[in-house]
Every structure is written in structure tokens, then in C-alpha cells.
Design a protein around this nucleic acid. Structure first.
Ligand code: FES
Ligand code: FES
Lengths: 148, 148
DNA sequence: CCATATTCCTACTATTCCCATAGGAATTTA
DNA sequence: TAAATTCCTATGGGAATAGTAGGAATATGG
């Protein structure tokens, strides 16, 4: 139930890179973090639409965080990439059923959702960016470093 | 990152049914819970291999819980259907990388995993089975009841 | 002893989602 | 005006998910 998509992992690594570099182009993030350029472009665009990064087009342009890394919660990043957490349909779609408060399974899933959300709200991008990270962390590619 | 597969939802509903009925055949669970019989058979078999239910073959046979519902934790069910929780590869596969303690992203994912596991260990099947549940809960099918 | 109910096993299919790749248009600046 | 860059859209391969299908093995009740 709980595989984090590569896309989300890439987003986190790209943002950690931005947090430490203060801003960079897709091409440079791509080579520093070894993420496919074209794929990364789409990810950064998505992060931009969610207001997490801002971009400058044209020569000399690139991406920057829209606010301090400490103010970007991990849940913001996850939500930007995957939408709101929704373990099962009826948790956030009231048209699916009308049982709500009386349905035990729903309460169970809701509890799970709260638990995950609580954690994702308790960590921010600054927490990650301050520390060393392995370049390919989590994606099972190589084993090198990028400590800026 | 967090869609619960139909399979797992079916497993939970099937087990809640067993907890309340004290035992039943795949065919009857199927019609009570409106889950495809053949698909359900496979699910029940998987639950049997994990030791959550026991089965009797032949006429008059069927499935029963292997132990009291209160002793079956939700994490047991999830693990039976989906294997161990693993948000990212290197969380439980030490061959992926060697950074471990020093890698911040890894600590982050590990924390997420702990948070989810903690919750799934805090709820047991008895908690679910004691209360009303909507027949199609979570799967977005219909809106009926099954209060045994 | 045999018809029937049942689990158990294996193979197949359809659909959806994920992970990219590709090409180029639009924009900015040096 | 050339180069660097974001931005947009379309396509494809592969894996996972959800479900189907047929029948073998097994036990029971009559
Ligand atoms: S890549 Fe394995 S700990 Fe980060
Ligand atoms: S089916 Fe919606 S609350 Fe259970």
C-alpha cells in the first residue's frame, strides 16, 4: 500500500538540491541528482504549479524555492506530486457513500490518513537539506554522494 | 503514495465477515460482501498461507479465523496481502546502499514507515468487526448495509 | 458410494498507472 | 540573434492491479 513513487522521491531530491544551491536549472539539477532531464522538467513544473518553486525562463533562468526551506513541509511536496492523501475513495469523497461517522472501516482508514499526515507535517524540507544525502537515495540506482 | 489496493480492502471486509459469522464459505462471503467469488478465493488462500485463516475443504467446509479477532492486528492483514511496508527500496534492503544512519532521506522514510506501522499495530480486527460496516465500504461500489 | 459442495491451483486477459522519452514552441538574456 | 532555458503535448513500454476461467483435489451428507 505504501510504495513511494519515483516521481515523489525525485521531487524531494530536486528540492533538497535547490534548498542547498539557492537555485538552479533543470539541466544542472538533473546531472547533479542523476534524474532524467525531461522527466525532471515535468516534475519541476508540477512543483511550480503548486507554488513550491518559482521559475525564470530564458537564458540564465532556472528554479528557486518560493519560500524558505523550513517553511516547506514534506506534506506540501507529497500533495503537490500526488494530490491529497486518500487511502480509500470514501475517505474524502462524500458522494461515494453516506455512512461516514458510523462506518468503522472508514474510521480506520481515516485514522491511518491522519497518522501519515501528522508525520508528513512534522518534517520540513530544511530538515532534509541540512544534512548529507546520498545522490540516488531511495531509488536504488547508485551509491555516491552530493554534499554540495 | 497511499492508495489501498482493492485486494486489501476486500481482505479486510472478508475477515470482518468471518469474525462476525464465525466461519463461512467463499461463496457466501462473496455474495454477502459483493466481491467476485473467484477473486476472493485467491485472497482467502493468501490469508490462509499467512496463517490468518484456516480452511476446511470439501462439502460443509469453508474458512475460519485462526485465532480470536482481537489477536489479529491490521498490520498482519496488510502484510499478508502486500508484504512488508517499504516506502523506498533502501529502507529494508541493505544492498541498495550503504549510507544508512547518515542519510537523511532514509531517516525520513524510516520515520514514515514507523508511523504507519505503529498505527496499523494499534488496531485489531475485533475493533472493526464489532461495529456496523457498509457492505461496499471503501471500494466505491454501492451503499448498502451488512450488520449481520 | 456418489453427487455435491467446497477449497485449491494455474493460466489468461483487460485495464490502469508509472516512468520515462521525444520534439518542439515560447521566452529571456547576454 | 544565438544560446539557454522553461513550458507544452504526445507517445510508448513495462509493471502492477483487478478480474476471469476452467478444472483438479478433497471431503461430506445422503
Ligand atoms: S540511498 Fe540508502 S540511505 Fe539514502
Ligand atoms: S463505505 Fe463509506 S464510510 Fe464505509
Amino acid at each position: 500500500m505504501f510504495q513511494v513513487p519515483a516521481k515523489t522521491q525525485y521531487a524531494i531530491r530536486a528540492l533538497a538540491h535547490l534548498a542547498r544551491s539557492g537555485g538552479d536549472s533543470a539541466a544542472r539539477i538533473s546531472s547533479a541528482q542523476n534524474i532524467s532531464v525531461k522527466y525532471l522538467e515535468g516534475i519541476l513544473n508540477q512543483l511550480k504549479l503548486s507554488g513550491i518553486v518559482v521559475s525564470d525562463r530564458g537564458r540564465g533562468g532556472g528554479y528557486r524555492l518560493s519560500r524558505p526551506a523550513s517553511e516547506i513541509l514534506m506534506i506540501d511536496i507529497v500533495a503537490a506530486m500526488e494530490g491529497d492523501l486518500r487511502p480509500v475513495e470514501c475517505v474524502d469523497d462524500s458522494t461515494v457513500c453516506s455512512m461516514e461517522a458510523f462506518c468503522m472501516p472508514r474510521r480506520f482508514w481515516l485514522g491511518l490518513k491522519d497518522s501519515v499526515e501528522g508525520y508528513l507535517k512534522s518534517v520540513n524540507l530544511g530538515d532534509l537539506a541540512e544534512e548529507p544525502l546520498v545522490t540516488f537515495c531511495g531509488t536504488g540506482q547508485k551509491k555516491e554522494h552530493d554534499n554540495v
